[in-house]
Amino acid sequence: MSNFSVGFRSSGVIQILDLRGELDAHTASELEAAIQKCQSDSQFHILINGSGLLYISSAGLGVFMAYIEEIRENGGDIKIAALQPKVFNVFDLLGFPMLFDIVDSEDDAIGKFVPSNA
């Protein structure tokens, strides 16, 4: 049984993915499938809500890295919100804030999408 899940919601043109559980080399393929689904539905404004994410390893981080360029080439972005401090610490250790918008709340992330949608 997987201890990781991805929930889908939307807010206007923004596709919100609610991550829950532990994201490691075993469960990273589920996040990959979720991002691929967004792409195939032509939804390139992706907001990751990490409030339910309890753990992430480099395999999970690698999924964001693998898709970010393609998503941006299509005029979109992956923005990350509401990470728990211990999970944010891992993103920070690897320098992810340099490459991704990582914000405190889902509303902040939605706000950051607005200028590019206008």
Binding site: S58, A59, G62, V63, M65, A66, E69, E70, M98, L99
Partner: peptide
């Protein structure tokens, strides 16, 4: 990190 994103590499 930036090179990794450009080359769409996910591991390492």
């Amino acid at each position: 990190l930036i090179q990794f994103a450009k080359t769409k590499k996910s591991g390492g």
